[in-house]
Design a protein around this nucleic acid. Structure first.
Lengths: 210, 210
DNA sequence: AAGGGACTAGACAGACCGGTCTAGCGCGAT
DNA sequence: ATCGCGCTAGACCGGTCTGTCTAGTCCCTT
């Protein structure tokens, strides 16, 4: 639906082009201030691109940028999930948490921000921009599916697997958010541990999924 | 710092006045779309008040409104925590969760929104509005303190109590957010249960807090 | 060498933003 | 009755927002 033009996966040349620079800048800014909190001029300034380029690559404007950012990072996380070789899903979770942690730290050092909950930042205010909210939902859906798949492989029923996956995501998002707001990075690590324990499947039955 | 005027707790008359209407409208809108996603004109339209009234009651403008909204709801939650009579903190947590759940449901029915993570919505983009971010932080701080107080009363060490309290808050916030984004209300209930289990203190020692 | 299309470049437009200002209403005190 | 003040009312202002438009550059193809 929508977005009639562009969206080149292998456009033609682009060694490391404008399009990517814009997406990266947008990712960073959206994470810091959410959808309505950033203007395209600001994105442009960071990406060092003129307006013409932006609307050439993203004829759908700000919405399209946000949507693609969401797709980009959800894809990245899904890859992490599938790539992590750890035996148990809990281990995988810890691995992802560690990588997100590094990511937060590095961007905090270079840019001055420090959250990871990009999707959250965009999802929280989708009410005025429905396509963005929808994209956020799809992003969660994809990540949850990848996580649930692993959980099922360990013998969990589909419904339970999905619920745990979503709960784990929620834990991470909430942890990242509160951790940033409070200025206590260690809190995020605690949340990661918490999410990981949620992915523990054997031994201690966890009961009441409803 | 700031806000030199007004802030009347018992102004003079006000049977159920403009000031409250503005705060309520702002609360609802901020919850739906975050700080930057809401314009004061919109708040005014819902509150059915003219601009003059707004700047009479809130000379600090939008920032002040957001700040007071944050204070209002954090106070409300703290009261809930202290009022809940349940013996264990876990029970208290469940009680709060249930009340937040009702609140979400009712506002969803009347207004069409459906999140509870107001603080999250405001905290997420405080970068451009530092006083708002600070207020969000204070709000979390107050709630966490109230929660931690109960946990300590059950024998937990201060540090551990605080960490668990913040983690519980994060779980609730994340749960509310993902639940709303995914359009699955039941997810919030699962998150509540998860937060409650985090407040279980005796019996099963939970290990590694760092 | 010449032509054409992808992309860059930024001036511009219209809408809307938060915030200020002056005017006036209504009620309680005197 | 009239005065004063808390509050309402909304026109207005400069600035910023997203998005459009025309020109121009650069490279790739032929």
């Amino acid at each position: 639906m929508g977005v009639p033009v562009a969206r080149a996966t292998t456009p033609r040349k682009e060694p490391l082009g404008t399009r990517q620079r814009i997406l990266r800048a947008a990712l960073r800014l959206f994470r810091q201030r959410g959808y309505h909190g950033v203007g395209i001029n600001e994105i442009l300034a960071i990406a060092k691109a003129p307006k013409g380029s932006l609307y050439h690559h993203f004829p759908g404007g700000k919405d399209q940028i946000a949507t693609e950012v969401l797709e980009m990072i959800s894809e990245r996380v899904v890859e992490m999930i599938q790539a992590e070789a750890g035996p148990t899903t809990a281990e995988v979770m810890r691995g992802i948490g560690a990588r997100l942690w590094q990511w937060m730290q590095s961007t905090a050092a270079s840019g001055g921000d420090g959250a990871c909950a990009v999707i959250a930042a965009l999802a929280a205010e989708g009410d005025t921009a429905p396509p963005v909210a929808l994209a956020a939902r799809r992003a969660y859906e994809r990540i949850a599916a990848a996580l649930a798949q692993r959980l099922e492989r360990q013998g969990l029923a589909p419904r339970a697997a999905r619920e745990r996956a979503l709960l784990a995501i929620a834990t991470l998002e909430g942890g990242g958010l509160v951790s940033q707001t409070m200025g206590e990075p260690s809190l995020f690590l605690a949340a990661v541990e918490r999410a990981a324990s949620l992915c523990e499947v054997a031994s201690t039955r966890k009961g009441k999924p409803s």
